[in-house]
Simulated assay, not measured.
Amino acid sequence: MTPFHAVEITLTRPATHRELRHARERARLTANADRTRLLVGPERAAPTVPRTCCDAS
């Protein structure tokens, strides 16, 4: 199984809508309601489900 990590970034001032749009072009991220914290996630949308011994190949 591959681990997935996220990085939380705390800003000293709220990001503007233009700054958020610019940042979203370069990385997959979300902002909290007051735009002072950003969360950068992995490139993949969801982790793959590991196969078990009983799964059909």
Rank of each mutant, 00 (worst) to 15 (best):
M1P: 15
M1I: 15
T2I: 12
T2M: 10
P3E: 15
P3V: 15
P3I: 14
P3S: 15
F4Y: 15
F4H: 15
H5F: 08
H5D: 05
A6M: 07
A6P: 01
V7G: 00
I9S: 07
I9Y: 14
T10K: 15
L11M: 13
L11H: 05
T12D: 14
T12L: 05
R13G: 03
R13V: 10
P14L: 03
P14K: 01
A15K: 06
A15G: 10
T16W: 13
T16L: 12
T16H: 12
T16E: 13
T16F: 12
H17D: 15
R18L: 07
R18M: 01
R18C: 00
E19T: 07
E19I: 07
L20M: 04
H22Q: 15
H22A: 13
A23K: 03
A23E: 05
R24M: 14
R24V: 09
E25H: 08
E25S: 12
R26M: 13
R26S: 13
A27S: 06
A27G: 02
A27V: 15
R28D: 03
L29E: 04
L29R: 01
L29D: 06
T30S: 05
T30C: 04
A31P: 04
A31I: 07
N32A: 02
N32C: 06
N32S: 09
A33F: 02
A33G: 05
A33D: 10
D34H: 07
D34A: 08
R35T: 01
R35H: 10
R37W: 00
R37G: 00
L38I: 14
L38K: 06
L39N: 03
L39V: 14
L39W: 12
G41K: 00
G41H: 02
P42K: 00
E43Y: 01
E43Q: 07
R44I: 09
R44Q: 10
A46N: 01
P47V: 13
P47H: 12
P47L: 13
T48Y: 10
T48M: 09
T48S: 10
T48W: 11
V49R: 14
P50N: 04
P50M: 05
P50S: 08
R51S: 10
T52Q: 03
C53F: 12
C53W: 12
C53V: 12
C54E: 10
C54Q: 05
D55H: 07
D55C: 13
A56P: 12
S57D: 12
